[in-house]
Write a protein that binds this DNA or RNA. Sequence first.
DNA 1: GCGTGTGAACTTCTTCACAGCC
DNA 2: GGCTGTGAAGAAGTTCACACGC
Lengths: 243, 243
Amino acid sequence: MSQQVPALPDLPEATVARLPEYLRALHHLAESGNDTVSSEALAGAAGVNSAKLRKDLSHLGSYGTRGVGYDVALLIDQIEYVLGLTQRRAVALVGVGNLGHALAGYAGFGSRGFRIAALFDADPGRVGEHINGLVVRHIDELPEIAEAESIAIGVIATPATAAQSVADRLVAAGVTSILNFAPCVLSVPDGVDVRKVDLAIELQILSFHEHRKASLIALPAAGGLTALPGGLAATGTEEAVGS
Amino acid sequence: MSQQVPALPDLPEATVARLPEYLRALHHLAESGNDTVSSEALAGAAGVNSAKLRKDLSHLGSYGTRGVGYDVALLIDQIEYVLGLTQRRAVALVGVGNLGHALAGYAGFGSRGFRIAALFDADPGRVGEHINGLVVRHIDELPEIAEAESIAIGVIATPATAAQSVADRLVAAGVTSILNFAPCVLSVPDGVDVRKVDLAIELQILSFHEHRKASLIALPAAGGLTALPGGLAATGTEEAVGS
DNA sequence: GCGTGTGAACTTCTTCACAGCC
DNA sequence: GGCTGTGAAGAAGTTCACACGC
């Protein structure tokens, strides 16, 4: 038998990743007093092109009005619904070092659909500390608190060496989504989602582009491919940037 | 100018984004005393599948040895070269609030190819503060210091309201790559690269998947779609409806 | 034998361009 | 006239599967 209508349209991942950006832009528009917005304008505010935006929204089945645009308030409701932001989700933050402290104090979580429900650390010296109105608890208390607070999302802000073990404990405590700030790969069971944020990786990607820009500027003549380590030289197929 | 920089292979963006992950895994392997590694093993350590890894590395023109694998040390050199990590790049960090403090203290920058060369803030109350051996300077001093330190990469950790103006000033000071932690879209001239990290967006993407998982488990009978905000119910692609 | 390197098939994402509706 | 919604074309990325060199 064919399945009943799914409660959620199953959106392309690329679309899901952009919806939060649209949402932010829409809130901004709403605060500025706009009732409707065209795909062109919203796309501009979200930093994408308008065809992409329209296609993304069409996946929600969202109804704009031809000749007019989208109803801002309605679109906000729809996107918040799809993203599951109609409830304020409880988040556990593990690791209150440098970065963890900053995250615990980050107002953006609170204003955008989340509530940091508990802070954990393994270091007894940190347990008991108050941050932003919350007490840091020992990681051993995770199971009971996760249960009590219905925590389904965990944020890992520990050193890389501890991250896998923390992930295991989060999963054991019923967490099914993890945001990982530790620079390492986590392995988790099927059904658990992991997203990763690695600051050094972001910089390294930028570094590549810096390197690339520098090499394009410095090199119009395709002669001198000598100085590089093994084998790279053969690959350059640039038709150069004219100048 | 006279530095003879060879043309870089122009890698697919998706490949560029994974190279740092491979690099981290390789360093880890090297520390554990491995001289060579197979695509299977390295892929596992980096959390990707081996075909993808081999294709990525093939874009570098990198030579593994058939029947053996890749030389760990050589591969590290090649990736670091391509990413432009053979020099330690100077980075300017603007905004030393909550998050900025944490970033300024983050050891991962130092150990992975970067040097925080200067800290800036617009708040006179913060100027002069010492963080991790650096003095916070007023943002007005950016041009001279960027010049003196050859800063080409800027990190924005200010509130969203200040981010665009900071970006403009960074660009004016010669910065050509920006890592933006502020939740807003930046507009910059062509030739300047921007990458964005938005913590709330990451959580919202996870929230979508939570919502989706929940809806699949408690899969409602087709009637139960009445409660959602305007119009979503009607959108399920018609053919899938088995009613 | 083993494991890399790679064409070819396939999937996903983006962009185009225009029909359809206000 | 203006703007959305969408098929169709195109580009980018992933996976397959196997030839080739060690």
